[in-house]
Design a protein around this nucleic acid. Sequence first.
DNA 1: TTTATTATCGAAATCGTTACCGGAAGCACT
DNA 2: AGTGCTTCCGGTAACGATTTCGATAATAAA
Lengths: 339, 339
Amino acid sequence: MNKVDLKELAERLNLSVSTVSRALRDKYDISEKTKKRVLALAKELNYQPNPYASSLRQRKSRTIGVVIPEIDNNFFSLAINGIETVAQENNYHVLIYLTHENQQKEINILKHIQNGRVDGLLMSLSSETDQIDHVKEIRKIELPLVFFDRVAEGMDVPLVTTDDYQSGFDATSHLIESGCRKIAYLSISKNLSIDNKRMKGYADALEKHRIAFDSKLVLQGAHDHEKNKKDIARLLKSKPRPDGIFSCVEKLAIDTYEVCRTLGLRIPQDIKIVSFSNLAVSSLLNPSLTTITQPAFEIGKEAAKILFKLLEQLEKKRPFSSIENKVFNSSLIKRESTG
Amino acid sequence: MNKVDLKELAERLNLSVSTVSRALRDKYDISEKTKKRVLALAKELNYQPNPYASSLRQRKSRTIGVVIPEIDNNFFSLAINGIETVAQENNYHVLIYLTHENQQKEINILKHIQNGRVDGLLMSLSSETDQIDHVKEIRKIELPLVFFDRVAEGMDVPLVTTDDYQSGFDATSHLIESGCRKIAYLSISKNLSIDNKRMKGYADALEKHRIAFDSKLVLQGAHDHEKNKKDIARLLKSKPRPDGIFSCVEKLAIDTYEVCRTLGLRIPQDIKIVSFSNLAVSSLLNPSLTTITQPAFEIGKEAAKILFKLLEQLEKKRPFSSIENKVFNSSLIKRESTG
DNA sequence: TTTATTATCGAAATCGTTACCGGAAGCACT
DNA sequence: AGTGCTTCCGGTAACGATTTCGATAATAAA
């Protein structure tokens, strides 16, 4: 066991522990000569400071937490990629927590995290979450928090999102312009603001083209693929059959593809599909999928950057500047599924 | 600021700090009555122990680290999903580190991690990694370590892998049986044992069918998509053109699809493709892709379980039982791309 | 009643690092 | 010589929990 601590360094160098500590951290009141001696020995012995002692004393952990619904999802893995990149640049560590779209898990995670384990939090809500007391609790202890994508609104917290309303509007308009008149909306959650906004865009686009909104055409997706496929199949077998599908999330679009295959429905001849998606192979699907693609990596990076800005302000005890929201544009990429 | 610590609890209860601590941890020498009082107040004040103080004292962090090459990759995100699931069951926290396939980053990460920040490590090597001194360093400090998928062999460390040789053999045989005679192998790294095994399976299958191994048909993939596509295009324009492709990783297969589209090559008529892949939409591609699919989620779970078993043994100071390797079977799923 | 035992709790040391305060030594300037 | 500044370093007390040891009181055994 190879544990070198400050005491050991101090003894070997005939210095005090506090001097060694300050030398290693390049403080002003240690001579250059001493600093060099200390650094040299520290390197030789491969000294690594104990992060827990340090965190305990400094009341900061150099760690941020990321709480997300799931990770086997292109959007979130790209976002984490962005987050981790920024964290590594700032010499921070990243703790990952998955809620698996479960509100109770989300509550538990937030509860067990509000003890200084992380200096800040990045978060995207679970689809089941229908109240946010647990998040407000986090605010009470003044833990810097940034929401991305699946945000909770009205909380005085920075939000990083995309132009969900506009995207919903554009996607639906695109379907209408492609000839669709009976367009279904596949939702993940009526609780999530991003879902509501997308649906509002959908509804407004319908209205603009004088197409009646029909609540029977709104399908609530679940966490269970099989159930989703059954529901989608029922929807696609209803008469008159929908001629367009706007899916709020990638996985429901995939389910739709599979159901269409099962039912022998042709895309785009029988039904056209557009979906939010970060699938790298959208253009290679059969048929290629028209997507609204969010800049997921950038969203992760930006959310992390804002969080680090908050941390810096906290550090310098500056008053928090105005809440910094950031809205990215998604891009509608037209492909065969709406052709 | 709402920081409740043991001292505060103790004062309010007219007890000593040590009694409160032991009551909370349900030790035998505290009366039931006192325990109840303590628990009640702790709950009321939402007491959360400071993890760093606790870790410092106990010399354990209840945290494991996961070091992987990338995360926007279906295999690794599924694996993490499995890891996180097991970790959450064990009340452990998960730190994520991405090497971005870069050896130097991998070295730095391992260096900064060997200070007690994690109790154990799960790891999959970067494709660039061509020596493993940094990993051996980790072993010296007796940090429990489990490799999964991209393992380093000969290190007396548990490995969780798939039957890469057999999969390589089967995939190649399948191509041959489908009529291919000039089969290219797309590799990610000559350093990785999984790559070597897959290639050995490829080579042996060729030999079994008396097809000469041709090193010009082995293409070394890089981290850069554009370069890969150029290389693949060059390969596919060579004469006589390869009639089969066996790709070691998903992303090279995707690149190949795109190149084929650009060059106007028809899959599977002009060229057949099989690839390792965890893509959920393999069957929806145009044409659907024949894959060797690894049980990624299970691999993550199993690796984490083995790690926790090691941690438990360490806890009880039992001698380590024999190194526990686990080999999962991948499944060859035949689809149109080799039809 | 005395002694041994058990049940229950408190005081203090400890984990490794950092912050606060102060002190010695050297120099410059009156 | 005395005063005032720097420069450089050490001692000590935190940070918040756990653990060891021992103390007290209550109970059982003698």
